[in-house]
Amino acid sequence: MSVRSRNVRLMATMAKSIFWSRTDTAGSEQALFTDGDGLAARGTLLAVDPIPFTARYRLTTAPDWSTARVEVEAEGSGWLRRVTLERAASRWRVTTAEQGDLDAALTRAGHPRSGLPGTDDPDRLAEAQDVDLSGSPLFNSVPVRRLGLTSGPADMPRRITVAWVLLPGLEVVPAEQIYSGLGPGRVRFASGTFTADIDLDADGYVVRYPGLAERIDPR
């Protein structure tokens, strides 16, 4: 069964939902997913920084939680961009599409121009087993589950390379990240000079990511 067929089949039985409120800016994320055999998810992010935009994604992992395919569409006033990353035979295939003028919208708002969507050299992503979508707490759960950090005692730091998809422009760059288990329900995330201790539920999904988002549970 192809990744796309598996994704469609799993979406048809989607039952779980998580909603996060952004704490770094006005915004939110809702993810709908199934995780019985790896992860198949679709979600929507809303944010006003650096300019108001909506991003929609689909994410599929292999049963071992290594990422197989990610599709992201970002849209704002007068522009729309898409990027698809698909991993096969230890290589990433990256395709993009663009309509309108994101750079004009950024310039009008007083922000720097964005990079082009995607990457001009997919081989730079060769070491990545995970994709990280900026501003999305869901994508942190993928390496957490893949590395087995959801439970158990504090662990040694695990250094990984991710394909980092930047919002809103959808530029894709390799990034080094470090995940360290801090005992059940908590991991430490580090990238460059940034560090955050993330609270997780029993299944490894983010409950609180200081400086980024907090989960909103039904009452």
Results as ranks from 00 to 15, higher is better:
N7R: 15
M14C: 13
K16G: 03
K16S: 15
W20M: 05
D24H: 08
A26R: 15
S28D: 15
T34G: 10
D35M: 10
D35L: 06
G38M: 04
A41E: 11
R42C: 02
G43F: 11
D49I: 05
D49R: 15
Y57W: 06
P63A: 05
S66C: 05
R69T: 05
V72P: 10
A74M: 08
G76F: 01
G78Y: 02
W79T: 09
R82K: 14
R87T: 05
R87D: 03
S90W: 01
E98K: 08
D103G: 08
A105F: 01
A105Y: 02
G110H: 04
P112V: 02
G115T: 05
L116H: 14
G118D: 15
G118P: 07
T119L: 03
R124T: 13
E127G: 09
Q129A: 11
D130E: 08
G135C: 05
P137F: 01
L138I: 06
S141G: 13
S141M: 08
R145M: 04
T150H: 02
S151C: 02
R158M: 07
T161S: 10
V162D: 09
V162Q: 11
V165H: 00
L167F: 07
L167H: 08
P168H: 00
P168T: 00
V172A: 09
A175N: 10
A175D: 06
S180A: 09
R186A: 15
S191Q: 14
T193R: 13
F194Q: 08
F194L: 11
T195K: 14
A202T: 15
D203C: 03
Y209D: 11
P210M: 10
P210G: 07
L212S: 05
A213P: 13
